[in-house]
Amino acid sequence: MKILVSVKRVVDYNVKVRVKADGTGVDVANAKMSMNPFDEIAVEEAVRLKEAGIATEVVAVSAGIANCQETLRTALAIGADRGILIETDVELQPLAVAKLLKAVCEKEQPQIIICGKQAIDDDANQTGQMLAALMDWPQAAFASKVIVANGKATVTREIDGGLETIEIALPAVITTDLRLNEPRYATLPNIMKAKKKPLETLTPEALGIDVSPRLKTLKVAEPAKRAAGIKVADVAELVAKLKNEGVIA
């Protein structure tokens, strides 16, 4: 079976971004970029399913500017077989990405597509669920364990109260949570091999998808900073302060 994974190029999770002085956007010009951490987990899971003999091919898909090729190469270095870049300079919102992924699913006919649960830049947590709806496929979002057998996936999901396990028919969309696996580091030989793996480029226009943004960002701002706190000398002083704040009796 074929597995698709979506990989997004985002500002690295260690970078603390700054708002542009005029409030029109976030300054990412010189920021370190990486694969969205949840997508690394998605690629790792797909590659493990291939290593277990369940998947036959893993195809990584990324949408965005030409530099997303680097993100796809990272996916190929982890073990994906080929990459698809959907190249555009338009700012992509989750609905547009879901429509692009739908077009790719129709072409590639995967049994499973694994997305990250959330991109750490827009924090939207939408794309996988939207794709599932557009395909009319079942979904298993926030997966912490995936078992694929007999044309079904049994997925344990992280939910607010704990865990739940569901069984879904394939084809289906799965989105990854943090504890699904620990992604491997790409080794140098695998990074070299990845350079030779096939990478196809498509465009939204060629796929016939309108990707115009639906939400207009009027402004961005940094949240109010907390007033500087103090260090207390000992437990007694802490207790006195907390009593004074009225947060303990």
Partner: peptide, 23 residues
């Protein structure tokens, strides 16, 4: 915006062909 809401609402938005405004 709980795990249940996050699981459900993008499906609704996509079928209505509208953006979801998260959290």
């Amino acid at each position: 915006a709980t795990t249940a809401g996050k699981n459900l609402m993008p499906r609704v938005a996509a079928r209505l062909d509208v953006a979801q405004i998260s959290e």
